[in-house]
């Protein structure tokens, strides 16, 4: 990774990566109702960073990510655990889904539940794990 690839790749990556990240969030959020979810969202986000690493090098990719990938793994698993433990507050067993409906304008309302939080945990773990491995290999 010492010699950086062509300027075309770097420019393309600069535009594509944010779009991919945005798409990954979209996949994550719609996952409960349409195909998608934490796993595929996380993989898309990882691909975005993988491309970025190709184009701009390991150090830049790390800087852009801000947090270290293992931290993301820990955060993801913790978030999943927390989302499951929230059920204890409602005197339910671990990982029982809890839902609240937030009414928006008119008839529409947004349903929020602990399973969504759990999926975000999956999303973060997948990104963290993939990037940990990717960065380690890129270092070699």
């Amino acid at each position: 990774m010492t010699t950086l690839p062509s300027i075309i790749l770097r420019t393309a990556v600069r535009w594509i990566s944010p779009l991919l990240l945005l798409f990954s969030l979209f996949l994550l959020l719609r996952g409960h109702h349409e195909p998608g979810g934490g796993f595929s969202g996380g993989l898309i986000a990882s691909t975005a960073f993988a491309l970025f690493t190709f184009g701009h090098g390991l150090e830049t990719a790390r800087r852009i990510l801000r947090v270290s990938p293992p931290t993301l793994v820990v955060a993801g698993i913790t978030l999943a655990l927390v989302s499951g433990s929230l059920a204890f507050l409602a005197h339910k067993t671990f990982l029982t889904g809890l839902w609240i409906a937030i009414p928006l304008v008119g008839d529409t309302r947004v349903e929020l539940g602990t399973p969504l939080l759990f999926d975000v945990g999956v999303y973060l773990t997948v990104i963290g794990a993939t990037l940990t491995m990717l960065f380690e290999f890129a270092k070699e």
Partner: peptide
């Protein structure tokens, strides 16, 4: 699929 990916990378390492 995701796990076997993780295991594969581990095996490669």
């Amino acid at each position: 699929i995701v796990i076997s990916f993780g295991v594969l990378v581990f095996a490669v390492a």
